[in-house]
Design a binder for these strands. Sequence first.
DNA 1: GGAAAATTGAAAGTAATTTTCATTTTAGTA
DNA 2: TACTAAAATGAAAATTACTTTCAATTTTCC
Lengths: 127, 127
Amino acid sequence: MHYSKQRELIYKALEDNAIHPSAEYIYDVLKKAETRISLTTIYRNLNTMALQGRIKKIQGLEDKAHFDHNTHEHFHFICKKCGRVYDVPSEIAPDILMKAKYETGFQIDSYDVVFHGVCLECKIEGR
Amino acid sequence: MHYSKQRELIYKALEDNAIHPSAEYIYDVLKKAETRISLTTIYRNLNTMALQGRIKKIQGLEDKAHFDHNTHEHFHFICKKCGRVYDVPSEIAPDILMKAKYETGFQIDSYDVVFHGVCLECKIEGR
DNA sequence: GGAAAATTGAAAGTAATTTTCATTTTAGTA
DNA sequence: TACTAAAATGAAAATTACTTTCAATTTTCC
């Protein structure tokens, strides 16, 4: 795999924006930073990196995908009001992967846990 | 809410096809059974029923949504080879919802656990 | 039986993402 | 350093899953 300036910028933007941004969000961030980059390249690289396991793709029940540079095992919470994606530590479900493997007998490569609800801020603001 | 023949057929098709079908799959099933129904109506009713909690929407990392008539708490496994969706009992992660609520302090309405990997059949067939 | 409210379906529309393909960049080799 | 093959980019077109619109039909209630 060849190096590319764009891919590096995309990864950095992911790191610098801990809000689990979407492809479009990264595009806007990079555009504001005067970067010459296309949305196509962003989609392409996010997918490639996700496939390689360098980043993680998060798909909630909404239309668009979010991405996470943190590949350590952890869960997510998506607020149905503001759409923000929060981290939830995976320690709340010990051994879930091991148990699922044992239970199904399948080869399990990864798993996702996504909680849906209303975050504290939206709750307080009564959104 | 008014009764509709179509909604009943859609729900029955969901019940009869325990494979967690997509909207299109249900459309094909009903079409083959000589049913006069449109894809629009299927999407509409699946969404309505999911909103009411009568059925459940499953969104994996693939593009299309799947639906489940079983609303009892359980998890899913999606095979990356054949695309089939399998059930995984939720008892493997006891108290996960309670713990997540406690940990985040958020209002959590629902949550999804999706495992990704290769199912036994695809493993054996070497797909 | 009639009217209001809900549902349907065909067609058009939308939004996110992917594909295509000509151009440019990268990285190894002469 | 030049050369070349493989990989990456970006603009535009295409795709796909799904939603909206709206006139016609169906359901429910009085």
